[in-house]
């Protein structure tokens, strides 16, 4: 079965100049889509990436990344909209490029669909009451 796994990768300093993703793609039959990356020489690197492929292949890839001392976090756990803070205005809805935010039909509350999020972070900046947070 084909699956998509969205992860945040934190590269330790010594790995930043290695072609880690490229090597993985050569070794395994896997698709990848880099949503965001901040990789600077001599600094910790950070990448938001989606791997798509057969379930066991994706699992292998993630395991291999871990073995290389790369810190791995599943992305969807890192994006939060705090409903105690949110006023449900909906300014995030117009900003979101993938419609991950939407109004609930009857209550008009602002809901968030993690699966659609590509972590462009526009909503984080655009939220007036800072209800949306992203933690890597």
């Amino acid at each position: 079965m084909k699956i998509s796994e969205r992860v945040v990768l934190k590269f330790p300093r010594e790995l930043v100049d290695k072609p880690t993703i490229s090597n993985l793609v050569k070794k395994y039959d896997i698709e990848f889509n880099i949503l965001q990356a901040q990789v600077l020489p001599q600094k910790e690197g950070l990448m938001v990436i989606v791997f798509t492929g057969e379930e066991n292949v994706v699992k292998h890839v993630l395991k291999e990344l871990k073995n290389q001392n790369i810190i791995l976090q599943r992305l969807k756990q890192d994006i939060t909209k705090d409903d105690k803070i949110c006023t449900h205005c909906g300014v995030c809805i117009g900003l979101c490029p993938t419609n991950a935010f939407y109004y609930d039909g009857s209550t008009r509350k602002v809901l968030f669909d993690y699966e659609k999020c590509i972590t462009c972070m526009l909503c984080v900046k655009g939220c007036m009451v800072r209800a949306i947070k992203i933690k890597f």
């Binding site: 449900h88 205005c89 909906g90 300014v91 995030c92 809805i93 117009g94 109004y103 209550t107 509350k109």
Partner: peptide
């Protein structure tokens, strides 16, 4: 409704005022 038409363009709308709180 979620979008407006301006000329030929359809533009997604965002609200700054909370209808949930107004209600």
């Amino acid at each position: 409704s979620g979008s407006i038409k301006v000329g030929e363009r359809t533009i997604p709308t965002g609200a700054l005022s909370s209808f949930v709180m107004a209600r």
